[in-house]
Write a protein that binds this DNA or RNA. Sequence first.
RNA 1: GCCCCGUUAGCUCAUCUGGUAGAGCGCCGGACUUUUAAUCCGGUGGGGCGGGUUCGAGUCCCGCACGGGGCACCA
Length: 496
Amino acid sequence: MSGSDERPADAGSLRHGLPELIAERRAKALRLRQTDAEAFPYAFAGTEPIAAILDAYEHLAAGEETEDSHRVAGRVLAKRGAGKAAFLDLVDRTGKIQLHARVDVLGSEALQRLTSLDVGDLIGVDGAALRSRKGEISLRVDAFTVLAKALRPPPDKHGGLSDVQTRYRRRELDLMASEDARKLFADRARIISAVRGYLDTEGFLEVETPVLQPLYGGALARPFTTHHNELDRDLYLRIATELYLKRLLVGGLERVYELGKDFRNEGVSSKHNPEFTMVEFYEAYADYSDEAVRLEELVRRAARAVDYAGELDLEGRWRRVTFVESIAEATGIDLSSARDPDALRAEVVARGLEIATEGASWPQMADDLLSKFVEPTLQQPTFVLDYPVELSPFAREHRSRAGLVERWEAFAGGIEIANAFSELVDPDVQRERFEAQQRLASAGEEAQPYDELFLAALEQGMPPAGGVGLGIDRLVMLLTGRDSIREVVLFPAMRD
RNA sequence: GCCCCGUUAGCUCAUCUGGUAGAGCGCCGGACUUUUAAUCCGGUGGGGCGGGUUCGAGUCCCGCACGGGGCACCA
């Protein structure tokens, strides 16, 4: 943005639009500096939340006034002049209260200062509680202080801000204009707090593992790469925390979790942001069935934390269906009999299903069938169980079904929210999986790097364990009824 | 990377076939001591960027930028 837009108007130069609005506000700020010794104080101590005042005077009758003085601070949302009186709406993080200014209380000079405030200015007020004749709980302005002059105009006071581009790029304006936006991010915080609360209560230890990793792993995704100058080596921003957390189980921490950002250098969509918040938790001596129960409980706690009242049944036991069953239900294809690429391709073509089959591997096609034909239908929370081994390099082979692993993905609202395994703990099997991944990589496919330190950890003896990765942004989408990840991330990734 | 749609005043939106671009809110000035989308009077402000066609382009054409949706991608 060009700085020349923001200078006050020079004498004789014609300025319009935003520069003019800013110039007018700057002129007012200048006047404040000249006339008010405390125009820009460093702090304003002793304020009460507006909501507390509204609660405390609920009993007042219309027209009833008190001499109980209260101190509040917030942003001027609206201004209604009435000659020798004025009304302002003041908003803080807890609510909105009307201010009533009168010349017989303030004097004409102070009233003039008050009415020359702009919508968007931050002020502190001392005043007595009253209920106006029209019935609104208000504060009579006995004294006020400008806490910050707003040099730019706020969004429209009733139309609000609806341009999505501005809402995402300048989230502060969205929050300023929309109580709903403020509530959404408060809900997000409550959800995260509930997740931590549940895991803490269950004896999980919150840990922090490297974001900058010498090798990336734990998921299949392209990483962001960066460079450490002193060590003179490339590092990757983590795509998952999985491998480090499992090493902590080897170390005996037994129940651990990490909640934080992962980074994937992939496309942006309504379900994908290049940096996103994930919680992964791992539990020794448990398997994937135990973890399904944990996820149900964890999501139930989070839903209660925000008084979830949507369409999804998050209180009861979630539906469970196997990978093979779910695809058979949705497409009629029996994966257990179409076990090689050619057979599966023939089935897909015969049924006229629109997925890529040219040169596609069996696992690619199977996964495509799931994401295209099953996932969108899974509105009520559902665990899809027992995936083909080819799709899951860190999951343990199924105890009774050949070719499958003990893995589930949890879906709700038509999107994937979580993924879990009975963790693969056998170092020799894990080594074979890495080797298979290397063959994929040399064939040009995305695959796991070979992680010797992780294998060494497994060779120390890793307890049987269940582990879960839960996408926090998607959980927030689900519990707040938003259909885009950009709505629930404060500052989503945008082009410059 | 591909396809479709969008971009007009500080904000929210209009503007038939190409012919002087409008409103509400905001802002500035004035009136008003109980308003709350305050009201009343007067004033102020604009076609994303770059080309082209045309006597004349917000409108038609080309390119670019950004956004939205979809596809691809995303275990």
